[in-house]
Amino acid sequence: MAYRAGRERQGAARIAARIVTAIVAGYAILYFVSDALGLALVSAQWTTRADAVLIATNLAFLLAPAVVIWVFAAGSMWRAVGLPFVVAALLMALAGVLQP
């Protein structure tokens, strides 16, 4: 059965790391994608800031379940835990650059 750990070398710590990644990095990616996209829409003068916030945030929601699935599907711990935090950090940096 899939739920029986052990053979797959899924210690409690590894599972905990994935759960923390899904929550923390998952929310960070959701947050900074909507942040960066919203700022980009404003600085490109495509929309008003109210619409930019609206469009960016509601599109970012679509990404959130995909991130969670990625975290629990990825084979290695680097891909499951490391990569999401790196992506979140890059998005944070991007949003920082775009700040007016």
Partner: peptide, 28 residues
């Protein structure tokens, strides 16, 4: 999620409205 998007992810409010939810709500 769309109904109260600005409360779930206040990124835009923090960056574009200096963190003022009131200002965002008045405008949006």
């Amino acid at each position: 999620l769309v109904t109260l998007y600005w409360l779930y992810v206040p990124a835009g409010i923090n960056s574009l409205y200096a963190g003022s939810e009131d200002a965002f709500r008045r405008e949006a």
